[in-house]
């Protein structure tokens, strides 16, 4: 029974992962990414890590991928733009990815499978699976790496916030959003000549050009 579930969800994880990479529509890619994450959560539970499975669903499937979807829908990306693909960069990323994957694979086998004659693997016990054990390991044995990862994420958040702000732009809180007149054009200051240097030039909105093409 467990073997059956394992093969079912392993196949689902691999299959949907392939769809993530190959599908043309970003929405379908993202939705199959959810499927990949969910099947991996099932595999975690089968491996005796129910906490990891629950957190995987809660954090990745339930929050992070929703953010992906949010951005994709906000930009209303319909099809992947083929013109933007840089062949050289694609090749290099593929090579680095394959090397990293093989290295991980090799490490996994070297640490576990190839150690013939070593101590027998410990059987899964109720105590080993329990949340308390996970907590003690995470906040005791591995406290330093845990805190370092947290710090890294904090730095990433601050970095993203700084990168997203245009230099010299006013504080972008909701109250300060410019209120446009019904003409949908930003009102310009009559005293100042030329465009507002703090704002990017207003290009033709994307939806207008799209409709003009149709």
């Amino acid at each position: 029974m467990e073997t059956l579930i394992f093969f079912l969800f392993a196949a689902l994880a691999v299959g949907s992962a392939i769809v993530v990479v190959t599908h043309k529509s970003p929405i379908y890619s993202t939705l199959s990414l959810v499927l990949t994450l969910l099947s991996m959560a099932v595999l975690f539970v089968l491996l005796g890590a129910p906490f990891l499975g629950a957190v995987q669903v809660l954090v990745y499937a339930g929050a992070i991928v929703v953010l992906f979807l949010f951005v994709i829908m906000l930009l209303n990306v319909q099809k992947e733009e083929a013109a933007h693909v840089d062949r050289g960069a694609q090749l290099w990323t593929a090579i680095v990815g394959v090397i990293a994957f093989l290295g991980m694979f090799w490490l996994a086998f070297w640490r576990t499978g190839l150690r013939i004659g070593g101590p027998a693997p410990q059987p899964l016990t109720q105590e080993f699976v329990a949340l308390r054990t996970v907590a003690v390991e995470l906040f005791g044995t591995y406290l330093l790496p845990f805190e370092m990862v947290g710090l890294l994420l904090l730095v990433a958040v601050i970095g993203a916030t700084v990168a997203a702000r245009r230099p010299g732009a006013p504080d972008n809180s909701v109250d300060d959003l410019p209120v446009y007149a019904s003409g949908d054009e930003p009102r310009t200051d009559p005293l100042r000549s030329g465009p507002d240097p703090r704002r990017p030039s207003v290009a033709e909105p994307a939806y207008k050009t799209k409709e003009a093409n149709v």
Binding site: P50, F51, G53, A54, V55, V57, L58, A61, V66, L131
Partner: peptide, 13 residues
């Protein structure tokens, strides 16, 4: 064992 977490996880889907 992870009941409440699982509830929130499934609800978030």
């Amino acid at each position: 064992d992870t009941g409440v977490l699982l509830f929130l996880a499934i609800a978030s889907l």
